[in-house]
Computed example of a mutant assay.
Amino acid sequence: MEDSAALEERDEVGVGLRLREMRRAAHLRLKDVAALAHCSESMLSKIENGNVSPSINTLHRITRALGTSIGDLFAEPDAGAPFVLRQGRRPTLVSHPLRHGDGIVLESLTPFEIDGILQAQLHIVAPGGASDGLISHEGEEMGYVIDGSLELTVDDHRAVLGPGDSFFFSSKRPHGYRNAGDIEVRVVWVNSPPTY
Rank of each mutant, 00 (worst) to 15 (best):
G162D: 06
E184K: 14
V154W: 02
G128A: 11
G164D: 08
L161Q: 00
R178N: 01
S171W: 06
V185T: 04
D132M: 04
H157A: 13
V185M: 00
F169P: 00
G129N: 01
V154K: 00
E138I: 07
L134H: 02
H175L: 08
G164Y: 02
V145F: 03
G176I: 03
R173H: 13
V160I: 15
V154L: 07
D147A: 05
G176A: 09
F169I: 07
L134D: 03
G176N: 04
H157I: 08
Y144R: 07
S136A: 13
G129C: 00
S131K: 02
D182C: 11
G143T: 05
V185A: 00
A159Y: 13
N179D: 09
R186V: 07
G133S: 07
G162E: 11
H157Q: 15
I135E: 11
S136H: 08
E141K: 07
Y177F: 15
L152Q: 00
P127M: 11
D165A: 12
E138V: 06
V154I: 11
D165F: 05
D155C: 14
I183R: 15
H175N: 06
D155V: 13
G128D: 08
A180C: 06
R158W: 08
R158V: 15
L150M: 14
A130M: 09
S149N: 12
S166C: 14
G129M: 04
S149W: 12
G128M: 07
E140H: 10
E141A: 09
E151Q: 15
E140D: 13
G128F: 03
T153D: 02
H175P: 05
G139F: 04
V185S: 02
P163S: 15
T153K: 11
S136Q: 11
G148F: 10
S149C: 12
V185L: 13
P163H: 06
F168V: 12
Y177I: 05
I183G: 13
R158T: 15
V154M: 04
D155I: 12
E138T: 01
P163D: 09
F168I: 11
F167S: 02
H137E: 10
R158E: 14
S171A: 13
V185G: 02
S136I: 08
S166L: 07
E184M: 13
V160P: 06
R173V: 13
P127E: 09
G176D: 01
N179V: 06
G133R: 06
D147S: 01
D182Q: 14
H137T: 06
P174Q: 03
D132S: 14
G148Y: 06
D147W: 02
G162K: 10
H157R: 15
K172E: 15
G133L: 05
D147M: 05
G133C: 05
S166R: 11
F167W: 12
D182G: 11
L134C: 02
Y144N: 05
